[in-house]
């Protein structure tokens, strides 16, 4: 685990920026691009927390695979903008972004504040990549092997189901 405040606050700002922009934006393809940026920023956070494998999985699945599925779905739509009833959205978004900005300033001020040692409840763990890999292997193949198998089966059923639906509709 690396404690890098610059990386942390950069990814924090990026998460807030991309999140607010993806809510405020009307065009779907831009919403998707902002969401991809947010998912990559979250993968930086995972890396900072010491979970490199989750960071890679987050970047690969949420940063690449899921946007492709959503992008294909957007291609099916006509690309019309949302209706005029949503003129209230920018106001709500700006109010919400102001609240988030205040929260961000609050977090930075806490970081710069001098905290007594008694408030540091947990020690920062130090470990190497081998421990994390070993924990992953133990978790997937020993402790939670049935959960792993069920999720693998679920993914297989979904893929097979899509194929069968497509074949059924084609017939």
């Amino acid at each position: 685990m690396s404690e890098n405040p610059i990386l942390f606050y950069t990814s924090f700002i990026l998460i807030i920026f991309f999140g607010i922009m993806s809510i405020a934006e009307q065009r779907l393809i831009r919403v998707l691009l902002y969401a991809v940026g947010l998912f990559f920023a979250v993968s930086i956070l995972f890396y900072l927390l010491g979970s490199e494998y989750n960071a890679i999985i987050q970047a690969a699945i949420y940063g690449l695979a899921v946007p492709i599925i959503i992008g294909i779905s957007i291609m099916f739509t006509t690309g019309k903008k949302e209706n005029a009833k949503e003129s209230v959205i920018p106001t709500i978004t700006w109010i919400f972004s102001g609240i988030l900005l205040l929260g961000f300033i609050y977090v930075i001020m806490i970081s710069f504040a001098i905290l007594p040692d008694s408030l540091h409840i947990v020690e920062i763990p130090q470990r190497n990549s081998y421990d994390v890999l070993s924990a992953f292997a133990k978790g997937i193949f020993i402790n939670y092997v049935w959960s792993f198998e069920i999720i693998s089966l679920l993914l297989t059923v979904v893929i097979a189901g899509f194929t069968l639906f497509k074949k059924g509709r084609a017939d």
């Binding site: 959960s147 999720i151 993914l155």
Partner: peptide
């Protein structure tokens, strides 16, 4: 970490 793996799937 394992739960996040499952949640991602």
């Amino acid at each position: 970490y394992i739960f996040v793996l499952f949640y991602t799937g």
